[in-house]
Structures are given as structure tokens and as C-alpha cells.
Amino acid sequence: MFRISSVCLCLFASLAIADESSKPGRLTVAQKNGWATYDTELKKKEDAVNKACGSAVKSSYDRSTYPAFDPMKDRTQSACQMAVGTLVEVCRTPDGKAAVKEAVTKTVCRLSTEGTKVSLDGSVLTIHIDPEKSSIVGKEPGSYSWKSALEEVL
């Protein structure tokens, strides 16, 4: 009987440990440094957009969509920066500049499992980045660039 209760106790303890390890914990130094680099580079794109568009757009990552962020493996930051930076290209025309200035106050990059695309909800432009499906999709079938996808929602 003593052995059965010991086995049960060990089983419960290991389940409790497994449950704790699956919860998001504190960020490692590598993760903190990775996010700091991502934020710094995104801020540069944000500044370029605001200069070209005459806007006051703020940009960020939806960190809650990155449950197991590893800056050594994750490569979504380049897609995010490219999409935000493409707003500069959209602002090269008067209509594009007016659309960005009037419609967008914030860009948010989020990790996606439903395809790479952009959406506009209110004044928030969300950039959905799916590492498994990196081709940009839009409302119509076919191949999209960040510029054509952005122009389609703006």
C-alpha cells in the first residue's frame, strides 16, 4: 500500500510540474533583447511612415500571439517591418497619403495561423504573419504584394 500511494504522489507532483511548465513564465534575457531589437527596428519604419505620410501612426507587435517566442528562430519581424515600411510606398500618391493619414492610427503585427494578410478594423491596421503560409493573400484570388494588399484595405 505504501508503494501505491508513493507512486500516486509522484504522479500528481509530476502533473503539477508539467502544468506549471506549460504556463508562460518570465522572459529570458535573449527574449527581452529580441523584443527590444524588434521594437527598435519597427520604430524606424514607423518614423519613416509618419514622415512620408504626415501621420502619427504607432506600431507594435501583438506579443500575446507569440506564445513561445524565440528570437533565434523567429523570423516574422522582417515581414512585419516590410509591411509597415510599405506604407511609405502607399503614401507616394495623394490618394494613398490621404488614406493612410485619415484611416490608420496604429499598426499591429501578429503571429497568425490563418494566412499572411492585412486587415483594417476601425483605425487599426493589423498585419497577420503566418510563417507556414507566407504568400500574402487578399480579397481576390491571386498573388499580392504588401503594397497591393495595403491599398486594397485602405
Rank of each mutant, 00 (worst) to 15 (best):
K44T: 11
Q77F: 13
A68G: 01
D39Q: 10
K45Q: 13
K58Q: 07
S64R: 13
Q81K: 12
Y66T: 03
V49L: 13
P71T: 06
D70C: 01
K45P: 02
P71Q: 08
A68S: 11
T76F: 13
T76I: 09
E46W: 09
M82R: 15
A48L: 05
N50V: 07
K51G: 01
D39F: 01
F69C: 10
M72K: 11
M82F: 12
N50P: 02
K51L: 13
D47H: 04
T86E: 14
V49S: 11
T37S: 13
D70S: 01
K51S: 15
P71C: 07
A36P: 07
G54N: 05
T37H: 10
N50M: 01
S78R: 10
A48G: 06
T40N: 06
Y38G: 09
T37P: 05
Y61C: 10
Y66M: 07
T37G: 09
Q77W: 09
M72T: 08
A83P: 14
E41K: 14
A79C: 00
S60P: 03
A48P: 03
T37R: 14
Y61M: 11
D74I: 04
M82T: 15
A48E: 15
C91R: 08
S60N: 11
K44H: 08
Y38W: 10
S78D: 07
G34R: 08
A36V: 09
A68F: 04
D47E: 13
V84M: 15
L87S: 02
C53E: 04
E89M: 06
D70T: 01
V57M: 04
A68R: 06
L42V: 06
E46P: 06
A36N: 12
W35G: 00
M72L: 10
